[in-house]
Design a protein around this nucleic acid. Sequence first.
DNA 1: GAACCATACGGAGACTGTCTCCGTTTACGC
DNA 2: GCGTAAACGGAGACAGTCTCCGTATGGTTC
Lengths: 182, 182
Amino acid sequence: MRADAQRNRDRIVEVAREVFREQGYDASLDLVAKRAGVGAGTLYRHFPTRENLVDAIMQSWVDRVDDAVGKVLVHEGPPRELLLAWLRAYVGLVSLHKGGAARITSAMGDDESPIAPKCQVLARATGRVVERLRADDALRPEVDAVQICRLAGGVASVADDGGLGDDAVQPLLDVLAEGMLA
Amino acid sequence: MRADAQRNRDRIVEVAREVFREQGYDASLDLVAKRAGVGAGTLYRHFPTRENLVDAIMQSWVDRVDDAVGKVLVHEGPPRELLLAWLRAYVGLVSLHKGGAARITSAMGDDESPIAPKCQVLARATGRVVERLRADDALRPEVDAVQICRLAGGVASVADDGGLGDDAVQPLLDVLAEGMLA
DNA sequence: GAACCATACGGAGACTGTCTCCGTTTACGC
DNA sequence: GCGTAAACGGAGACAGTCTCCGTATGGTTC
């Protein structure tokens, strides 16, 4: 890639992250282009669809997921605490950007989606938690990682576009944990 | 209201129901107006926002909710079956229109929303199920009707925009039921 | 049944956002 | 330096939302 193209691409991603955080995922892409100081054509050449741009923004986010699951797993404690800690972390991670929770959760299990790689990162991280819980026979056998992602993602979506605070989310996660554990 | 106004209003609602079923809740309102044979101004005078129109469409739907909860309650059986039957019915009801689940669930608990009355209908119906379950001491005491609506609505949203079928939804509802029951 | 007017109609058009096309500019290998 | 493939940018076509205001009409009153 030419140096100027790389510069523009980076700048667009940086600006888009900012704009999306401010205005949610519906923000105008022309505005992103304008703030990044490039033409609309340039933006659309680099990112033909909104999804592609979202995907690029979320790159750094993958690292946060790995971080988070590592932290949760290192912490000793009863399975219930472990699961709840992961559910809380999960909801936090998918809710980093307004509208993100619904976006990610609806793509979960769809390999064609432009954000499929992100879903897999989440599913794999959840898989590590599942593995640990299974070792202790703490998880109901019919529950799998994708189901956990969907359930937690559902709660996150509801919290996100209903504007629920942590205090409203916690009891919902309690129900989920209760239902998943053996 | 003048007779012609009433006629137009009815016609708009009828057409909108059709168009929304075909194209989801993002369908163009100008298209609705055109198909209904009225000007855009007329549509917007009757329904200043999209939400208002959605609200009108859902009128008949209220009756279906009451029907559904009646049917579920009349059916004898263990609490688990009762709860699952309601959760299944609930998901079906909020998913009647594409995008409806997220719309309703995110408004749950917000009295200012134009579709607040619809949410209250659902919450009240769920409340009747909760009451029955409590009579048998079958429900965990900290779980309330709004939480159930949010959890079931979360699952319905995920199923709706992820295109999940009944076979993928059923295990999610199992987890919810397991987590809600004492 | 004519006259009146509040109520309602309709559609042009302003505004906003998406996305494409193509003439112009620029990076970079030679 | 020079040539060219790569990239740029922004005008503009298109689509959706919503408003404004001149026009039409239902309903009322005499």
